[in-house]
Nucleic acid binder design. Structure first.
Length: 816
DNA sequence: CCGATT
DNA sequence: AACGGCTAATCGG
């Protein structure tokens, strides 16, 4: 017996059913001296039966108590959104008993609803026990074993407490990546062996393992005799390095399932869990996961896709592009799956290239993780979940978990997830969003940029918006109202609601942190952590509005979402009107911000801000983001007026910002995007239409003489559905069909790259996959008219430059 | 040429 | 499994 407290950082949590049939929680953690600890705890799973208003709660509770398998019941007074309800908490030994009880309760009278039965046990345990992953906790209990597998200490918990909110420092991170042969169109785990595996970890750890001898190999290489030995060496390397966090890019659905398949083929173990257990994969089409016991496995591509992608310029989320954008390093070679075979069967030089390629992938993954891990830690702390979960969550899940975690503090019952039929119904309802002010197409000078800081979160907070305050009985229709399309809503004026309190807290905390960051040097140790926290707070606050309008949300509230956008429209309109009054000229506005010509009134900016801000309810605030030297707002194709959400700006520092225009859109050929980017830059920086025209003419000459790379003509598109679900065959669908015939695994999410070739008939009838196209194939006229000209004609039109002159005349320079 | 689809 | 707004090419009748 030892009841001394042991301090530790929880890394992950799981549960199993003990021999006695009870729930046995396992917490895997790291002690202060970096020893591995596993803590066992017990937990009684439960759900809540909400008692019908008319029913006799005492009678009902008695009946439930006598029901078979029920271990315990508790009657509680709770809030269910706005209703005061009696909730009977029903406990059972394990989830399967609980399910049986639920079935029996179907026949009981007096239960209006079952709640909190659809939350995973791990999450419930963490919420109810207030254990925050990665922050310092203490456990008292019986030390069962010293050492078992890789685990140094096993404790049966009697008491677990939070000690502080300090995060675990300097986790040991290991990134890995495998290479396989590829005999078909994609690697097949039944046929193609793993040939190489690279690692890149904390403290400059590097290793590449392979089973083919290579001369003049770098010192970080390890050579083995074959694939089975390679896999054993992978296991050894992981054990030896002993990572707390193991990361891959696509490792949930590629690397791990692949290795697991190969070990099954050889009937060999893959015992990399702390307790010697095998990885657990859940293969759900497109969104599988691989979980290890103890080691936290992150497939960082999931976090990139779910959370970071809206903030990335790159539309494609492959490691090469994401690496370049996030950490400035891309792949060492542009390799297709099948060209790995060629290098593998090539010269010693080729093999060295493959080694470098393999190691580079792990290096990029490691550096991406270094960059995003602080944000994940902060999110984990705020929503109280392990990194394993945080790394794989979408916006709606992050917001929902945040609300779920805090609901008990407000005595709120956690509503159940909507049924599919309910979701379908919700999806039918749409509502009006942000206001967009149509600009006059033109080139403008000296443009001020204004926007409301976190507009939607501020509105939620300022107007006390939320499902619990909507049209409350305590205030009634005589209170201040928000009008939306003839309908009127009000939000409680007496008591702050659960949602708005939480959002206000996020907004306030972020404001304070931003203030501290202003006085913190980037090199300070606290800078990165505070910056990550600020990002995490912003992410959660900004996603909350979208969550309220999300059909799958537990706390769905269409009226709230409508009220938020309606108020947003009102406040952006106020900016436009006030700017006019002070003699400024607003040229463009979108949802929460506006561009305003400062003209000769720059000195009045402060007055303008004060005028608006003095009318705003706390915590709303209009901010001035400085000015741009010049801006190009493009016109629409049809009719007069400017296009919304499409413009280019030139900052005083010479940086160019592009929004919405073709040059940053994925479904255009690189050649068209580059042309537009160049033309915009020449116009913005030099204001020379002739020089821009010269550039275009030159390019058209090159296209005519086929002096271009096929890659520059490639048009990429992502399939938004499975092939058979398309109602008509657009060019990208036609190209995807070709890919399918070639043996590619074509389904929703497949990225197809194609070229439009010469010939007659529909465009969809003359596409070729980029990989099959040659430079003599492409349709010169299509690329001139539909890609190059199309990307720039609106710019030339604006300056009354005749389009025909771009096409017909050869460049004066080359002509000469 | 127009509406639907992407 | 976050929202809506927006433009424009292409298909298919």
């Amino acid at each position: 017996m030892n009841s001394q407290e042991i301090k530790f950082f929880p890394l992950d949590i799981s549960y199993q059913i003990s021999e006695e049939g009870g729930v046995e929680i396992s917490i895997f953690g790291i002690t202060l001296d970096r020893k591995k600890i596993r803590i066992f705890d017990s937990f009684l799973p439960y759900f809540c039966a909400i008692v019908d208003k008319k029913a006799d709660a005492e009678k009902l509770i008695q009946k439930i108590r006598e029901t078979e398998l029920v271990v315990d019941v508790k009657l509680e007074s709770k809030k269910y959104i706005q209703d005061n309800v009696k909730a009977i908490k029903i406990f059972a030994k394990n989830p399967s008993d609980l399910r049986q009880i639920r079935e029996k309760l179907r026949n009981f009278e007096g239960i209006s609803e079952i709640a909190e039965g659809d939350i995973s046990l791990r999450k419930k345990y963490l919420i109810d026990n207030n254990i925050t992953p990665y922050t310092l906790c203490g456990v008292e209990g019986r030390i069962e074993r010293r050492g078992f597998g890789d685990i140094d200490l096993t404790v049966i918990a009697e008491k677990i407490t939070r000690i502080s909110s300090d995060l675990i420092g300097n986790p040991r991170v290991l990134a890995f990546d495998i290479e396989t042969l590829c005999m078909g169109s994609a690697p097949n785990a039944k046929e193609d062996p793993v040939i190489m595996c690279s690692f890149y970890g904390s403290n400059n750890f590097k290793r590449v393992i392979t089973w083919k001898p290579i001369r003049n190999a770098p010192e970080y290489m390890r050579f083995v005799g074959g694939e089975q030995e390679l896999i054993n060496e992978i296991i050894r390397t992981i054990r030896e390095f002993d990572p707390e966090i193991l990361v891959g890019y696509g490792s949930d659905f590629f690397d791990f399932p692949y290795i697991i398949n190969r070990t099954k083929k050889y009937k060999m173990p893959l015992n990399i869990g702390w307790d010697g257990s095998e990885p657990m994969t859940r293969l759900r089409l497109g969104r599988g996961t691989t979980k290890l016991k103890g080691i936290v496995h992150l497939d960082i591509s999931q976090f990139i896709r779910n959370v970071l992608s809206p903030n990335l310029e790159s539309e494609r989320l492959d490691l090469n592009r994401v690496g370049k954008e996030l950490v400035g390093i891309g792949k060492s070679l542009d390799l297709k799956d099948t060209s790995i075979n060629v290098l593998w069967d090539g010269t010693n030089e080729d093999l060295l290239k493959l080694v470098e390629y393999n190691l580079r992938d792990s290096e990029i993954v490691f550096k991406i993780v270094e960059k995003v891990l602080p944000t994940q830690f902060q999110l984990a702390k705020i929503i109280n979940l392990p990194l394993f979960d945080v790394n794989r969550m979408t916006y709606s899940q992050l917001v929902e978990q945040f609300l779920l975690k805090n609901a008990p503090d407000f005595n709120q019952v956690i509503p159940r997830r909507p049924l599919y039929s309910e979701i379908k119904k919700r999806r039918q309802q749409t509502y009006v969003g942000g206001f967009v002010f149509e600009p006059e197409a033109n080139l403008y000078e000296n443009i001020g940029s204004f926007d409301y800081r976190s507009l939607y979160p501020s509105l939620i907070s300022a107007y006390n918006i939320g499902p619990t305050t909507l049209n409350c009985d305590c205030c009634g229709p005589s209170s201040e109202k928000v009008e939306v399309d003839g309908e009127e809503y009000w939000f409680c004026g007496k008591e702050d609601g659960f949602l708005s309190i939480l959002i206000r807290d996020l907004v306030d905390r972020r404001k304070r942190i931003k203030q501290i960051l202003k006085d913190t040097k980037k090199t300070d140790s606290s800078y990165q952590e505070l910056n990550a926290l600020s990002y995490a707070l912003k992410t959660l606050a900004n996603a909350t509005y979208g969550y309220l309008g999300f059909a799958g949300a537990r706390w769905y509230c269409l009226e709230c979402a409508r009220a938020i956008t309606a108020l947003g429209r009102k406040y952006i309109d106020q900016v436009i009107k006030t700017a006019h009054k002070l003699g400024f000229e607003p040229i463009y506005a979108d949802t929460d911000g506006a561009f305003i010509l400062l003209k000769n009134k720059e000195g009045q900016v402060d007055k303008f801000l004060k005028k608006i801000n003095s009318t705003l309810p706390d915590p709303m605030e209009l901010e001035y983001h400085g000015k741009y030297k010049r801006g190009l707002f493009l016109g629409k194709k049809s009719g007069a007026g400017g296009a919304k959400k499409r413009y280019a700006l030139l900052s005083d520092d010479g940086d160019i910002i592009l929004k919405g225009i073709e040059a940053i859109r994925g479904d255009w050929s690189p050649i068209a995007k580059k042309t537009q980017r160049e033309v915009v830059e020449i116009i913005l920086k030099e204001k020379s239409v002739d020089k821009a025209a010269e550039y275009v003419k030159n390019l058209i000459d090159k296209l005519k003489s086929r002096d271009v790379q096929v890659y520059d003509l490639a048009i990429e598109a992502t399939l938004t559905r499975d092939l058979r679900n398309y109602e008509f065959k657009g060019p990208h669908v036609a190209a995807a069909e070709i890919a399918k015939r070639k043996g590619y695994f074509v389904r929703r999410g497949f990225i197809v790259s194609y070229i439009v070739c010469s010939g007659s008939g529909k465009i969809s009838e003359r596409v070729k996959l980029t990989e099959d196209a040659r430079v003599q194939d492409y349709d010169i006229n299509y690329y001139i008219n539909h890609q190059i000209i199309r990307s720039v004609y609106k710019i030339f039109e604006l300056f009354n430059y005749p389009i025909e002159k771009l096409k017909s005349g050869q460049s004066e320079l080359t002509n000469w």
